[in-house]
C-alpha cells in the first residue's frame, strides 16, 4: 500500500497551518498508523462494499416549509457581520 503522503499538501487541503515541530510529529505518527493499516492492503476483501443501509421513499421529508432562523440570529453568532450578512476578508475569484 502506498504511503508517501506529503504533509504540506495534506495541511493545505485540510486548511491547517503546522509548525516545523508539528509537521515532524504528525508525519512520524501518520507513518506509524499507516504502517499498521497495511493489514487492510493484504486482506482478502469482497469486490465491493455492500450498501449497509437503504431507506425507502417514506423516509423522505414532505415539502412543507418550516422555520427560518432569520438574519438576526445568523449574524448574532457570526464572528463578524454587516447589514445582515456575514463578513469575511475579500474573496478573489476562485481563490480556493
Amino acid at each position: 500500500m502506498a504511503k508517501g503522503f506529503d504533509i504540506d499538501h495534506l495541511a493545505k487541503l485540510a486548511r491547517l497551518q503546522l509548525s516545523a515541530e508539528e509537521k515532524a510529529l504528525y508525519s512520524n505518527q501518520l507513518n506509524q498508523v499507516l504502517t499498521y493499516f497495511e493489514t487492510l492492503a493484504r486482506a482478502d476483501l469482497p469486490p465491493a462494499a455492500n450498501v449497509a443501509q437503504v431507506i425507502e421513499e417514506s423516509a423522505l421529508r414532505a415539502d412543507i416549509p418550516g422555520q427560518s432562523l432569520g438574519a438576526e440570529a445568523v449574524t448574532k453568532i457570526a464572528p463578524a457581520s454587516r447589514d445582515g450578512q456575514i463578513s469575511v476578508p475579500r474573496v478573489v475569484d476562485d481563490e480556493s
Binding site: D63, I64, P65, G66, Q67, S68, L69, V74, D83
Partner: peptide
C-alpha cells in the same frame, strides 16, 4: 417550496440570510 436537505423555504429576492436554518448553516 423548501430546500433540498432542510425544511426552510427558499425564493428569489428575500433579504440576505432570511432563508436559513441550522441545517443550511
Amino acid at each position: 417550496r423548501t430546500k433540498v436537505f432542510a425544511s426552510v423555504p427558499w425564493g428569489f429576492g428575500e433579504e440576505p440570510n432570511e432563508q436559513v436554518d441550522p441545517v443550511v448553516l
